[in-house]
Write a protein that binds this DNA or RNA. Structure first.
Ligand SMILES: [Zn+2]
Ligand SMILES: [Zn+2]
Ligand SMILES: [Zn+2]
Ligand SMILES: [Zn+2]
Lengths: 129, 129
DNA sequence: CAGCAACTGACAACCGTTGTCAAAACCAGG
DNA sequence: CCTGGTTTTGACAACGGTTGTCAGTTGCTG
């Protein structure tokens, strides 16, 4: 089984930052924020931790239109989706039981198995409008 | 205004291939398929046409988990989503009026404007299972 | 206080994609 | 048909986000 990860200054710094920040941020943005705070962490290391957290399900990942991955620590550990501001990245966790039902139903109708889905809603938030 | 694009061998080859192929394919896959058919087209040119078709709304684009863009000529010009096979790329166009209503409603509730959404369903199709 | 395994980070490599630009192909107008 | 200009093409280089490398550092355990 996987060995427990060590608690290093860098790991803590990345995890803490993700807890403090509101909205989805790219690895490079997080790297830059850390550098400004003085708690400098190598870019490679930021990538590693951010991915480890994603694998552990502690942060959510989604992709910008250009393919860049952005990360966010969400309040809910349960399956949910996001309403994301295009301008500032701020986001709201949303749930839609009806959508969940619909996706698995339509997939079954077409004989698909191992079904997953991605659903994100993008817009401009009130502050950015 | 934009000048009408010329009908060249390459443009026709890419458009035809997209019409014949069932499922989402990357620019590189399309390039390779064309090369095998003998109708060789430069990779750069494939990228250009595939993007032009996407801009014109004639093909749908979505992104694989790793960020690679894949393209497909869909039967319906109207807004729709996809049920995509992870293994072979084959896909079915799906519509969910309820989902459309739900997304705009929840976005409005949170004061978001200019709302768009992405929704794709991934699974393993019957043939690939 | 070892001593070893895990972690770090500067750097290079990777890969999909986009920019460049000279050569080739289209398409009027003559 | 030619011919001139405009568009298109494609080999190649550059780009940007991400991942691999590996020697040096750091936590942790015994
Ligand atoms: Zn905003
Ligand atoms: Zn869901
Ligand atoms: Zn399949
Ligand atoms: Zn929709």
């Amino acid at each position: 089984m996987s060995p427990a990860p060590r608690t290093t200054r860098q790991r803590t710094a990345v995890a803490d930052l993700l807890s403090r920040v509101d909205g989805f941020r790219s690895a490079q943005e997080l790297h830059e924020l850390l550098r400004r705070e003085g708690a400098s962490v190598g870019l490679t290391t930021v990538y590693r931790h951010v991915q480890a957290l994603a694998d552990a399900g502690e942060v959510d990942v989604l992709r910008h239109e250009d393919g860049e991955a952005v990360y966010r620590r969400c309040a809910s550990p349960a399956h949910h989706h996001h309403l994301v501001c295009r301008a500032c990245g701020r986001s709201v966790e949303i749930e839609g039981p009806a959508v969940e039902r619909w996706t698995s139903q339509v997939a079954a109708e077409h004989g698909f198995t191992d079904v997953q889905h991605t659903l994100e809603v993008f817009g401009t938030c009130a502050d950015c409008a």
